[in-house]
Design a protein around this nucleic acid. Structure first.
Lengths: 206, 206
DNA sequence: AGGCAAACATACTACTGAGTATGCTGTCAA
DNA sequence: TTGACAGCATACTCAGTAGTATGTTTGCCT
């Protein structure tokens, strides 16, 4: 655990992950083949297997990147000087645009969340998915602590914390299920969407 | 449209659908094979293909049944004499236990909702999935109308209706993502879960 | 210049899993 | 009783896909 966990991803690897996320989103992680991903890249299998040892690892890396996106943006906006309401609101207002900016990644990680333990994975794949699980747990804890603090000081209604946490998390991820970027969409839509969801989430806690 | 849409499902067919829902839930709709479903039944492929022409149709029938479950229970509790809040609360308190009672089916339909258009489907499969889409839309409309009525008479805060609808729907389906029945679970847990979610959903609208 | 990796492309192999063709068995009507 | 059909089981076929083995090019260091 001595070394920092940044495996120095190359530009080509990032490009492959972008393509994989896009294709996995469109076709589903199981249905999509490595050849589909290669076609999306305008290249062939060889390129992908040069950088990733298996399809399972590729999928795991996509999920890991999805988790990293929000995990880099949200923690910095939390501050001890703010009230739980203010903290939670800022977290949500940061979370939603970042998720929609990297939408394909999050559509993929939700697939892996809804369906399925991976079948017959290699040790490396298991390790990566364990890391995804870990980061997910870390991210949940950020929200859990804010909710707990708010319930303690009476800002939020006292009730089952786990249920509350899951509900709030799913609520702020709801756009992942239905949002599709549109050409005729006004500039103001994303901020409006974010604030409305933040309002609803906060209201649900009172 | 003259005939009633009840294709007279046999007991054997229902048993197959139960097994398919269970296996599709555990392994994922793409990963799970027909042989897996057959093994769950303690029989072989032959039985399944005798009743269903393809894996896609089998999956579609599972989704259709999932939609039917809630669509049979929820509409009867809606009444014009009640306020929008009261109607919505009763709908949620009916929806959640029914979903958890038939959990595997709903885990499957959510998979098909998150991931993917089906690839290279037969006309029959397309027709069935269109029917699923139709029933889903019908179900959504029930909630949309109650929300709209509540916004009109001032019970609910006026805001983007579609966003509100999607958020509420996802919120009351949240347990599908995380709930797992436990042996040491008190009798009272399900009612408590339902009322807490109903409270949160209604509060989010104020 | 030249050699040597890294970064791919090409051409395979092996296997899994959907779908089919056919065989077997009980049941029920005529 | 018999034949005919529903309800399965068994034993295949065949297409698609993950993974591999091996070529080919491109930078890059000396």
């Amino acid at each position: 655990m001595a070394d920092t966990k940044k495996p120095e991803m190359s530009a080509s690897q990032a490009e492959i992950l972008d393509a994989a996320a896009e294709v996995f989103m469109r076709l589903g992680t199981e249905t999509a083949s490595i050849d589909d991903v290669a076609r999306q890249l305008g290249s062939t299998k060889g390129r992908i297997y040069h950088h990733f040892p298996s399809k399972g690892v590729l999928l795991a890396e996509v999920c890991l990147r999805a988790a990293d996106f929000v995990l880099k943006k949200v923690p910095p906006v939390i501050t001890p000087v703010a009230t739980p309401e203010e903290n939670l609101r800022q977290m949500i207002l940061t979370h939603i645009p970042e998720v929609l900016r990297t939408l394909p990644y999050h559509k993929v990680i939700i697939q892996s969340y809804v369906g399925v333990q991976q079948k017959s994975t290699t040790p490396l794949e298991r390790a990566l998915f364990a890391q995804v699980q870990q980061e997910r747990k870390t991210y949940e804890t950020l929200f859990r602590e804010v909710l707990r603090a708010g319930m303690e000081d009476g800002s939020f209604r006292a009730q089952n914390l786990s249920i509350t946490l899951q509900s709030v998390l799913l609520m702020i991820n709801a756009p992942v299920f239905w949002y599709r970027p549109r050409d005729d969409e006004p500039e103001s839509f994303l901020p409006e969407l974010s604030t409305q969801l933040a309002d609803m989430a906060l209201a649900s806690l009172r």
